[in-house]
């Protein structure tokens, strides 16, 4: 067992940190130029064929930088779904465009009043030579900017996955922002699609598999956020003077910061434990991912919230950076199943 990053991984981490610090994280085309949109894509389709460890390393840096672009939704979840479920020439063509950043895809999985249930109430009915999709999808990250949606729908008792153009007639979107200012949208679907838009009639396992990869990336993203919030807090305590001395000289505050490190370090261990589970059987992987999710997001609220608290009032402003980690924690936790959902999944595994 070896916990050290290899030279490519070190390079990926360092270059990502440098780029994000300089350029910010708000350029999808920038991600494409750095090769990040191809990390999760296989080499035979022009990608880098990166493993879970590589994805987690990059996601951690994106979280540290509070990057707003939908890396996890587009470059991980959608990319892995296309890789798994699209076949032949179209797979390479689609992945090629996604890697180049010229075509954005995102998954539309969740529905109103259904929390994190993946079995859809959206239906697909054969209609002439194609399918008629009817239903509603919510919390579709990047929904307003994506070119295509990967839509789950019930078909013949199974879960089917369709590729639906966002601007197609009958796709009625409403864009909004999440609490942490990420772009997303809800969709009312009443749309007919060509037969070849059905990617799979039995997609549930593939969706779960791709979701687990996306989930672990979101955990890594949050871990990067926690680390950054803790570092910011320690730095702030060393510069701010109250009662005639640096705040960092108060042991109560030193120990509060140490506690944040202790908890965040445990999250890092959960993440490192879950990464090799992607090389093993599905049940163990699901359990390891859910364990990591529970530890990550239960800890993230406390760590980022305490980072706000230890800054005092300045930490509570939107102008100051540290509170945005807390906002991101709250939203990220709810994207692919929350702490209670994953604790139940862990217990059922």
């Amino acid at each position: 067992m070896d916990f050290t990053l290899n030279s490519e991984q070190t390079m990926l981490r360092d270059s990502a940190r440098r780029y994000l610090a300089q350029a910010g994280g708000a350029s999808w085309q920038g991600y494409a130029e750095l090769g990040w949109l191809g990390i999760a894509a296989p080499e035979d389709a022009g990608g880098l064929g990166g493993g879970m460890a590589d994805l987690a390393i990059l996601a951690e840096e994106l979280g540290r930088a509070l990057a707003p672009e939908p890396f996890v939704d587009g470059a991980v979840l959608a990319t892995r779904l296309v890789d798994r479920l699209v076949v032949g020439h179209r797979r390479e063509a689609l992945l090629g465009e996604m890697i180049a950043g010229t075509r954005r895809l995102t998954a539309a999985l969740y529905e109103p009043g259904r929390r994190y249930e993946l079995a859809p109430q959206t239906t697909a009915v054969r209609d002439g030579g194609g399918y008629r999709l009817s239903g509603t999808k919510v919390l579709v990250m990047d929904g307003a900017a994506a070119d295509d949606l990967l839509v789950t729908a019930a078909l013949d008792g199974g879960v089917a996955l369709f590729l639906v153009g966002r601007e197609q007639a009958g796709v009625d979107g409403r864009a909004y922002r999440t609490v942490d200012r990420r772009d997303c949208a809800d969709f009312r679907l009443d749309v007919t699609v060509e037969a070849d838009r059905l990617l799979s009639g039995d997609a549930l396992d593939a969706v779960e598999d791709a979701l687990d990869e996306a989930r672990l990336c979101l955990c890594a993203d949050m871990l990067g956020g926690m680390d950054s919030a803790i570092e910011m807090t320690a730095e702030y305590l060393k510069t701010r003077t109250q009662f005639g001395q640096k705040l960092a000289s108060f042991q109560a505050l030193q120990h509060s910061v140490a506690d944040l490190f202790i908890d965040a370090d445990s999250v890092r261990s959960s993440l490192l434990r879950a990464i090799p589970a992607f090389g093993g059987e599905r049940a163990a992987r699901r359990k390891a991912v859910s364990a990591c999710w529970v530890n990550t997001f239960e800890t993230a609220k406390r760590v980022t919230g305490m980072a706000v608290h230890l800054h005092g009032a300045i930490g509570f402003t939107t102008e100051y950076r540290v509170g945005h980690y807390l906002r991101r924690a709250i939203v990220s936790e709810r994207l692919f199943g929350d702490v209670e959902f994953h604790l139940a999944r862990y217990m059922a595994g």
Binding site: S266, S269, S270, L272, R273, A288, A291, L343, M347
Partner: peptide, 22 residues
Amino acid sequence: RRHARLAIDVEALEWSVLRVLA
């Protein structure tokens, strides 16, 4: 439920031990 929550933390702790040992 409390047991599951404990198990998750203990699994993490085991990997923290491995990280320190290695």
